[in-house]
């Protein structure tokens, strides 16, 4: 079957089986590999994208269900001029990523949260940010979200060191 949708602002046509997860259409047909495969069962969030502005785990969304919708991936977050999204910049400022594999999904989840909540409370962050990070970057994810929403002066400054 043929599915037409918008991806990062571009009209896109997908040819293939309608049960193909959006994740694999994005990665293998469009070559947008920033959206990651983590588990295939919507448990880890590495594949998080936005569908009509809402966060979605694309490994578990059949392409047939997104016909006519607008999908944004990590590659679509930058401005048309190529400037980083403020959340991406906050991720750099807070030095969040380690292996980085989950971070596309984390950033997409955070952008959706901030779009909805403005200045999210700690409880809202806890509730919305359910993506798995095996490197354990959660403290800096929290710091980056607060910094991106003007709720922290400085994200994760250099740790204190001292002589023995």
């Amino acid at each position: 079957m043929t599915v037409e949708l918008m991806v990062n602002g571009h009209a896109t046509r997908f040819e293939g089986e309608s049960d193909t997860p959006l994740l694999w259409a994005i990665r293998e047909q469009l070559g947008l590999t920033g959206t990651k495969f983590g588990c295939g069962i919507a448990a880890c969030g590495a594949c998080t994208v936005h569908i009509d502005g809402q966060p979605a785990r694309s490994c578990s969304v059949p392409i047939g269900e997104v016909a006519g919708k607008a999908v944004t991936t990590i590659e679509g977050l930058k401005s048309p001029e190529g400037a980083l999204h403020p959340v991406q910049q906050a991720w750099i400022d807070a030095q969040v990523p380690q292996c980085g594999y989950c971070q596309s999904g984390q950033i997409m989840a955070a952008v959706a949260l901030i779009a909805k909540a403005g200045k999210p409370t700690a409880a809202q962050v806890d509730e919305a940010m359910t993506n798995i990070c095996r490197c354990g970057t959660y403290p800096r994810i929290r710091a980056a979200i607060l910094a991106a929403t003007g709720q922290a002066a400085e994200a994760s400054p250099q740790p204190a060191t001292g002589a023995a």
Binding site: K36, T73, K78, L84, I92, G100, Q103
Partner: peptide, 17 residues
Amino acid sequence: ARLDIPAKVDGSAQYGI
């Protein structure tokens, strides 16, 4: 700042997969 981080926030970092 870590040199690898910019590519890990915009989706451009290329992993084996």
